[in-house]
């Protein structure tokens, strides 16, 4: 699209927004919105948008934000036991990054009119979800590496296309998040490489972690395309750019040579290069397990939410104190006033 067309579409879109308040008929706004999305323009917080588009984004961004803060738990589990000071520094920085990602994402959701308190409440009461991958436990140090390599690797595969998401604040948050995630992924790979090339015990620890994290990582892309409830509409809105199965295939193709370089085996006997497709074939995913974990029957579902609620409840007096102090002294600038 040439620059003049883009500006014309944007102008129509914003005019529709400006005139919108008093009108019942939203067809002009809808047309401007559709044109802006078709023209690859970014929708911004003050632009008119369909209610369902807003709701879909809030749901998705909230789920993503919740995943960041719940995802801190399985890794924080190893901060106090990290086996070298270098690894400890890397892990602490990574967990800190996740808290930072949570902050950007809750802020992005806030631009859609839904505040952090409301979203946290929905998380704590089970009305909103987070990525099921974090319902698996980190049992050994190698799991920290497997999460970096596989879980962050899968997340990046999912998230890089979101940098082009039609909603501006989400797309911009994702640019920064993807840069940091890609750093984490390399760190996880490097951790596993050290283990794989280390003692026999360390190698076995790395292989065991990959055995346990491989299949859950593939499930991170969501159900197969023909069973994915929200996919078609999200693709049309350009919130989502590729189907679950496309992204899953891309991830498998990326991981196979990396596993070889690591000297580790991916636990799938059906994994084989298919010359005709130009992709790796892989074995069937156990969707029963996926749905079971999603329903709350994973190994750590209860524990993760209980710990999150515990932190929140035990911190209530601190947030109340910050709010009271701000009220007394007329400054609200701590960010700590969220109840």
């Amino acid at each position: 699209m040439v620059e003049g067309d883009r500006m014309a579409t944007a102008a129509a879109h914003r005019t529709a927004h400006a005139d919108g308040a008093a009108q019942e008929d939203t067809s002009a706004f809808q047309a401007a919105f559709d044109a802006a999305v078709a023209a690859e323009e970014r929708i911004e917080p003050r632009d008119w948008m369909p209610d369902a588009y807003r709701a879909t984004l809030v749901r998705q961004i909230a789920q993503h934000a919740h995943s960041e803060i719940i995802g801190m738990q399985p890794e924080a589990n190893w901060i106090t036991r990290a086996p070298s000071l270098r690894r400890k520094a890397i892990l602490m920085a990574k967990v800190q990054d996740e808290a930072g990602h949570g902050l950007y994402l809750y802020s992005a959701a806030e631009t859609l009119g839904t505040g952090r308190d409301e979203l946290l409440d929905k998380l704590h009461t089970g009305r909103q979800k987070y990525s099921s991958i974090f319902n698996y436990p980190t049992l050994t140090w190698a799991d920290v590496g497997a999460i970096g390599w596989l879980v962050d690797g899968a997340a990046i595969t999912n998230q890089v296309p979101l940098c082009r998401c039609s909603y501006g604040p989400y797309a911009r948050a994702m640019v920064r998040i993807c840069k940091e995630e890609s750093f984490h992924q390399r760190q996880g790979y490097e951790l596993l490489l050290s283990l794989s090339r280390g003692t026999a015990e360390q190698h076995a620890m790395a292989q065991d972690a990959v055995d346990r994290w491989w299949w859950p990582s593939l499930m991170m892309f969501g159900p197969p395309d023909d069973e994915s409830a929200h996919s078609a509409q999200s693709m049309a809105w350009k919130i989502k750019r590729h189907s679950n199965d496309e992204l899953r295939q891309r991830f498998v193709d990326i991981c196979v040579p990396q596993a070889e370089s690591l000297g580790l085996t991916l636990p799938d006997p059906a994994l084989v290069w298919n010359e005709e497709r130009g992709h790796h074939d892989f074995g069937p995913i156990d969707w029963t397990e996926f749905h079971d974990v999603l329903k709350g029957n994973g190994p750590c579902n209860d524990q993760r939410i209980a710990r999150r609620r515990q932190a929140h409840d035990e911190g209530a007096w601190v947030r109340e104190a910050a709010a009271a102090h701000a009220a007394k002294h007329g400054n609200a600038g701590t960010g700590a006033t969220h109840a």
């Binding site: 924080a76 106090t80 602490m92 808290a99 932190a311």
Partner: peptide, 18 residues
């Protein structure tokens, strides 16, 4: 480091880790 995941508010997760 023992505070990770347990801070009273998200901003403090970042600050204490820092």
């Amino acid at each position: 480091g023992e505070w990770a995941g347990l801070a009273p508010v998200l901003e403090e997760e970042v600050a204490l880790a820092n």
